[in-house]
């Protein structure tokens, strides 16, 4: 009985946290980046300072912790399939590729995007030149994660519903 609850609860948390994470990733990439560029180019407009000051820190807070929660719930969900998945054994290679993509994305969030955003937001001392570099690195890494999310979500779904592709 207890063992039947664990996968259900883990999957529920995995979906909730995953939607929060990837939803914010798509917000950053499909909405905010263009909005900030437009606001900065809008002479006489209100500018992007409000977004940078009030929206970005909150969005990044939910983004990075949701990323971690998604991974932990995913690892719990894999349970005994964790090692076969990550070593791409047999049919577990399908979820394994999804898990690797999600893991790489998590490492990019905590190892690249967040440290660079701390410089951009002024939470970590940086010169203007360092901030400009950090902004570009964070932007491109965020774009890489958006690209990676496309196969990642296919492989996540295909692990249980991939008959059409993988038999």
């Amino acid at each position: 009985m207890e063992n039947e609850w664990v996968p259900l609860i883990a999957r529920w948390i995995h979906f909730l946290a995953g939607i929060t994470w990837i939803g914010l990733l798509y917000y950053f990439n499909f909405v905010q980046a263009a909005a900030v560029a437009t606001a900065n180019a809008d002479q006489g407009g209100p500018g992007a300072a409000g977004i940078t000051k009030y929206v970005v820190p909150r969005a990044l807070l939910w983004f990075r912790w949701a990323a971690l929660a998604t991974w932990i719930a995913g690892a719990a969900l894999l349970g005994p399939r964790f090692m076969p998945a990550f070593t791409l054994q047999g049919s577990d290679a399908v979820i394994g590729i999804g898990a690797w993509l999600g893991t790489i994305m998590l490492l990019f969030v905590w190892g690249v995007i967040w440290p660079n955003q701390k410089k951009v937001l002024g939470l970590k001392p940086a010169t203007d030149a360092e901030k400009a570099t950090a902004r570009r690195v964070a932007f491109l890494t965020s774009r890489v994660n958006t690209a990676l999310s496309i196969p990642m979500l296919l492989f996540m779904g295909a692990s249980a519903h991939g008959v059409a592709l993988f038999g």
Binding site: N29, F30, L88, G90, S91, A93, V94, I97, L101, L140, R143, V144, T146, A147, L148, S149, I150, P151, L154, F155, L165, F166
Partner: peptide
């Protein structure tokens, strides 16, 4: 050459190409 990741369309196309590559890899593995 322009970085495809600078545009949303380029990012999505990059993701789709990567998907095709990884599906081929997965089919070879299983």
């Amino acid at each position: 050459m322009k970085n495809p990741l600078d545009s949303i369309l380029g990012t999505i196309i990059t993701g789709l190409v990567l998907t095709l590559v990884l599906v081929a890899v997965a089919k070879a593995l299983i």
